[in-house]
Write a protein that binds this DNA or RNA. Structure first.
Lengths: 210, 210
DNA sequence: TGTACATCAGTGAACGCGCGTTCACTGATGTAC
DNA sequence: TGTACATCAGTGAACGCGCGTTCACTGATGTAC
């Protein structure tokens, strides 16, 4: 899971029928986006990478925008899965579990900055897709549940929601700054994990109260 | 300053010589980017808006990328100015001054989401421009100085740097989430200013210590 | 103050390019009998 | 098990389009004398 995109290769096709062009197209776009930036992808080039004519993708996607939505949706799924896996590595209710969710988030951004930017930085009309919004909520839900467990409150408690939002803002901003390399945590002499634990403890512990 | 882009209009040209095409191009791109998203701009369309032939911009910019850099640089300047203005509305060294810097940042993002995304979301090669990096550092410097004043420590103190980075992460993430409307602070029943003051107090006060 | 001329900031036509998308088509697959 | 046929997932050629950029040009401006 979350293998580095550069390590992935779109396999050459052998049969006339592709098998799973939809998935291959998404993989090809991921590759492209990591190489040429979030807006450096075209249907034609992605089809070429998938070893297919430029018309073929239209058997699986209505148009360019739908391909994009497919990529973002798939990325959201992987992101949520990574967050859940992160949470599961520490005892439920621990601050470390919360920090691990944050680490998974930052790692995703660092491993696939192009896709991350595509999902959160651009807004080419996919912003109001109900499916993608739902996936976004699902990812947020992971943070909410961890925060709730940690605070010993129900997930729909306003304080839990507020804390979860703070945590997400934090990690989201850190992710962007890191991949923009505007600043690195390294430059502040704190290490990533310690940083996240400190922040989680600060927000969930005695520290910040809305 | 920081007037809403939609309210701005690129004035029709009268004379043969334009006067200040460079600035007009930047204004036109800002308009375009707010209307069509961070990647929805073209040299041709911007020139059209400025009431000029599509070749004219090349008298002022080497190529498309340089126009982009111009827009981002100008935006960075305005952002820093807004942050400084925010800080100046409260006593030096107060937590409120720090929160006001954050509010200026978020307000900028909210007022000009397209430009904000252009500056921070895309990375079409302008990421390593030394000029833009310097402007980014200048903006960060505002946060650092306010944090230093608040903590009573010199600006180059590691703790100050760490706090400033945390504050920036936070505000940066909040800005992105807000304009993506993934989540609104409103949905957590906290108001924006109270939120920023709480966060600033939490990070700079007894709360989070790296 | 008036003229000559260098420089500057535009024009508009043209270029080659790659794109998104459509179209009529064809080869492969799976199902009914 | 074998054949007929509907469906599916490709092809490849073509379309119109807008783009970024160049080019030789020209009108306006400012300076030297």
């Amino acid at each position: 899971m979350t293998e580095h995109p550069a390590a992935r290769t779109v396999p050459a096709r052998t049969a006339y029928h592709h098998g799973d062009l939809r998935a291959q197209m998404i993989a090809a776009v991921r590759d492209l986006v990591e190489t040429h930036g979030p807006d450096g992808f075209s249907v034609a080039e992605a089809a070429r990478r998938a070893g297919v004519s430029s018309a073929a993708p239209y058997k699986h996607f209505r148009d360019r925008a739908e391909i994009l939505r497919g990529v973002v949706g798939e990325a959201m799924d992987r992101l949520r899965a990574a967050m859940e896996a992160g949470a599961a590595t520490y005892p439920a209710g621990s601050v470390e579990a919360v920090a691990a969710v944050g680490l998974a988030y930052v790692s995703f951004a660092r491993t696939e900055p192009g896709v991350f930017r595509l999902a959160f930085g651009l807004t080419e009309g996919h912003e109001n897709d109900p499916d993608l919004r739902a996936k976004g909520e699902d990812a947020f839900g992971v943070v909410v549940r961890c925060a709730a467990a940690c605070l010993g409150l129900p997930p729909d408690d306003p304080h839990v929601q507020a804390c979860a939002y703070m945590l997400w803002s934090f990690v989201h901003g850190h992710s962007f700054l890191t991949i923009d390399s505007k600043r690195s945590v390294a430059s502040t002499s704190i290490d990533d994990w310690a940083y996240l634990v400190t922040v989680a403890r600060g927000i969930l512990g005695q520290g910040i109260r809305a």
